[in-house]
Design a protein around this nucleic acid. Sequence first.
DNA 1: TTTTAGCACTCTTCATTTTTGATTGCTAAT
DNA 2: ATTAGCAATCAAAAATGAAGAGTGCTAAAA
Lengths: 334, 334
Amino acid sequence: MLEERKKKVLKAIVEEYINTAEPVSSNSIVNNYDLNYSSATIRNEMADLEKIGLLEKTHTSSGRVPSEKGYRYYVDELIKEDNISLEEVKYISDKLETKVNEIEELTKIAANTISEVTHYTAVSIGPKTNKQIIDNIKFVLLNTRMMLAIILTDAGLVKETIIKFDEDVNEKQVETMNYMFNNKLKGEPIEKIDRPLEEYLYDEMTYSVKVIKPVIEQIKKALGEEQLHLEGANKSFELPEFNSLEVAKNFVNILDKKDLVEDVLESGLAEDINVYIGEENKQDELKDFSVVTFKHKVGDKDLGTIGIIGPKRMDYSKVISVMKYINKKLKDIE
Amino acid sequence: MLEERKKKVLKAIVEEYINTAEPVSSNSIVNNYDLNYSSATIRNEMADLEKIGLLEKTHTSSGRVPSEKGYRYYVDELIKEDNISLEEVKYISDKLETKVNEIEELTKIAANTISEVTHYTAVSIGPKTNKQIIDNIKFVLLNTRMMLAIILTDAGLVKETIIKFDEDVNEKQVETMNYMFNNKLKGEPIEKIDRPLEEYLYDEMTYSVKVIKPVIEQIKKALGEEQLHLEGANKSFELPEFNSLEVAKNFVNILDKKDLVEDVLESGLAEDINVYIGEENKQDELKDFSVVTFKHKVGDKDLGTIGIIGPKRMDYSKVISVMKYINKKLKDIE
DNA sequence: TTTTAGCACTCTTCATTTTTGATTGCTAAT
DNA sequence: ATTAGCAATCAAAAATGAAGAGTGCTAAAA
């Protein structure tokens, strides 16, 4: 347990560093934060905080910079109040009130809003489908060789996909499919659309493999496609840490790897807001960045995940407050 | 009209510069290209080419760099043969053979392929819908307050969109809508879904505005949404010109502005391949970049546009060859 | 007339040195 | 326990200098 004054010093240094991106000197916090001690006293405290690994120096005569452990302590112990202004609350409420017909659309809007308010890069991904319960499957014949499959889940998710055939298909066949698929799948989780089901259907239906196979294949493909979305990639480039070409390049590379970003969004374990600082990230590529994510959930229903990827020197207090507020708002909507 | 030797010198300089990104000296092209003259002779030619504005110097004692006019001359007059290898042809053919059910998907794959083969950043956008002829409109009731609208066009495009209602809707209403919309719109271009049509439908149908209005609104919205797609943003960052932070930042900013990229893709006027070099771009933001685009078209049917955004020092010969080949292949598929 | 060898001149790049200034840690006084 | 004061440290910026790549021009050669 840290003494009260040490906490104050650490908090001041973290916040000053978040603001300026420059190593923080003993003098600068004496002047700008209400610590009525001389710089020498602060220096002693800083030396202590460095000893227990919460601060770091870039070189012997430089100011201090928070270590990852320092940020972690700050996030866990030193941010108490919400850091969100009335204007921001208003702005967020307004944007989330847009009428949308699809959950994915809402998630995108939320990601966009977070990026706008925090000035960091946001990513989002639609709901994980494979655990969702199938409520209804509809097939609609578009023409003799083209059909639309529509899958509705209990979470209110609607997925459509086009299926093309190599031979003509008629209404009667589609009706049978409608019956068979619903009969077999209604109430089951989406992941049930698997190998055994395929075989069952081959057996059960008299229609050729040429008809059933593309249906199953395409449905699986469509449901598997995670729709990744990116907001405000350019915003990060305004930050001083992105003046290093290496950092900028790494960042672009990360955003370009969809699998990686997906993995980042999916690896959040906490109930509400996940914060991963630098090396805490499971992904090697992210060890110089911080990530904050949350799952948009109503009950057990997973409706998508939204995250921010930014520098370790991230305004955690703002980001977490905004995310909490948006998460709450989203729950209200659904 | 340029003398033959001057053409050779210009070609050599442009190609050397495309390869090395370094100002080209008289010596380097004497050694590496088959110009059997002394460096002094080449220097004289270079001075002449500079006088007529095809070359530039970065400072008095530096080698030459092509001017935009120089690149233009190179593109228009100096690239004759296709610059595409057997391996590349094979690679492209293989990738385009992937079975896809939607045109947008095919366009994405094509964009990805172009990016892979040329190592530049590719962007693509789905077809402009408003001129397409409506072949069929289908409405499918998903539940009492949710409906799916499916629009098929003569170009083989299928667009679906979900529509939510504030009041319950029944099958009979949907049937009437099916009839009315098709009756009024089949054979008409999509842009016909406009104000007069709305009013006509309000009059003609007995259902409340609460039902008709969201249908029209949402259909218009869904059809208006251009699906922008990006491939290989990170590839550009490997190029030496992107070592300048300013250039890198500009580039990220461009890619982030969807309207701008859309505009870039849409502003191609040429019949097949459009090449815009630096200041030739209508968009201010692109004056330090070059853009090559083409429209994926079958007959009059617009099926999407694909483009590359890269440095002015772009391998025009490779990019144009690859695009021509892919364009041809795409036509074969449809 | 065209081409080229040769050389002075220009300018960038890179490495090295010097200067400046911010900041610390320590010591001794408060 | 706190702080004033000061030497020591180190990065960043500025200044200096040497090396080298490339040109343009002139006068000779083809």
